[in-house]
Design a protein around this nucleic acid. Structure first.
Lengths: 240, 240
DNA sequence: CGCCGGTTTGATACTAATCAAGTTAAGTGG
DNA sequence: CCACTTAACTTGATTAGTATCAAACCGGCG
């Protein structure tokens, strides 16, 4: 973990926090300038390489963070090693489970990731003084709950083919939300193993279903990660 | 729906709300007596029979509620009718998705249920004026998110046998949390169809796995709904 | 060039779904 | 009280879908 993190100069923070305000989602948007300045003093931008562990299940929560760039995967494991990814966080999501002593999930950088970290006590003080901030975080938590429940339908009731289509649809709409028309182009932020762990499948099944979607011209896959969706509606019809 | 609901005299409410305060979980616990009295004026206790629909997916949210007695199931359906139960709510849980115009899920009474209903604007006004109430609801939302993610592991990575054991374990610990020692006794609040929809299985598979657990003396099933768990730890070992 | 991790493809095995009878439990009306 | 009805559940036989095991492939890198 140490090998894969690099501190970034602190003066970057205000700019990044304003950009997150501009997107009406990050936690900074509800703070006034005094609070923002106070917050900037305790935050620290850190860059992690893909694969770095950001927080471990059952370990004490040390800090919260905002995802500024990249994709973070949240996962849980059974004792025998079976793994399930239970959520993905994209910029500018808030990262961390408020009011809990220990992490309920493991957080890992799926791609290279920039985090804006805040120590646990600093953020909790700010939340206690600032109901608007708690409200903002409540709204994200509710969205995450909606997402989790939506994904439970995928895990419990969809076929392997529908699961893989649903995954591509999710990534296409998250990574390239502003794209006009039905065409989407992006690089997969997850390996085949991650995709399998997200979908409750094996990597072989994921690979076969991707090949089938490619054969049916629903997606164009160039190399191993680059994906083009010529017609998002056609992909959606494959999602069940 | 109308046939299965029965109004209860309003004077019952304060008592019931105090009982929910006593349990440190319902939404009334953080209100002062003035707010409680104001709230009591707009709340209404309603009883629903098992199977009644309390709220429908994609329909406008009319009111929130507290579950006072019984079990509510939250579900989602795919276009072709495949169904997945995405959550269960037990007394004294809060019911409803704050700040949303429409329901993300369908809510149905799994057993006979008593709800303490509050009109949407009344509760939202109270939440806006009372950060402690929003905090309380935030804590429940975070718990629900934890539960949903825990269940995603069950849906994505466990075998049918482990799923059924996990379901029994969940119900045993929710319905009879105060029981001493490892022995638990309860009635299943869900039909086999509901259990299958919760676990992402068919009812035949659920039935077979229950029979196997019974043959292995992990559970004693009397009639169709009455369940005795002689040793909760033994059941837990079957959960994977 | 050859190794290596990640991926794809193929052959087979196994789990859970589907299809099909039975069985039990709870009414309902004679 | 008992035959009849019905819905919910259980059990059995077969099939389908996905996992597992195994081998080949590909792209990047020393």
């Amino acid at each position: 973990m140490d090998a894969s993190r690099k501190d970034i100069h602190n003066s970057d923070i205000p700019v990044l926090c304003q950009s997150c305000e501009a997107r009406h989602k990050g936690m900074c948007g509800v703070l006034d300038s005094v609070q923002l300045t106070a917050l900037a003093r305790s935050t620290r931008m850190i860059r992690y390489e893909a694969g770095a562990e950001l927080a471990a299940e059952s370990m004490p929560v040390e800090s919260y963070a905002n995802v500024m760039h990249g994709v973070v995967k949240l996962s849980k494991v059974l004792e025998d090693g079976r793994q399930q990814i239970v959520g993905l966080q994209f910029a500018p999501d808030f990262l961390g489970r408020l009011f809990s002593k220990e992490n309920a999930v493991t957080a890992e950088a799926a791609s290279d990731v920039d985090l804006c970290r805040v120590p646990k006590p600093a953020l909790e003080r700010l939340v206690a003084e600032n109901p608007a901030l708690e409200h903002r975080l409540m709204e994200q938590t509710l969205r995450e709950l909606d997402d989790a429940r939506e994904w439970m339908v995928t895990l419990g009731r969809k076929t392997a083919a529908e699961k893989v289509a649903s995954f591509l649809y999710l990534i296409a709409t998250q990574l390239d939300p502003a794209a006009t028309g039905g065409r989407r182009v992006f690089d997969l932020p997850l390996t085949r193993t991650d995709i399998a762990d997200f979908l409750g499948l094996t990597i072989e099944t994921v690979s076969r279903q991707l090949s089938k979607l490619r054969a049916d011209r629903v997606v164009i896959i160039i190399g191993i990660r680059h994906v083009e969706i010529p017609d998002l509606a056609a992909l959606k019809r494959r999602c069940g």
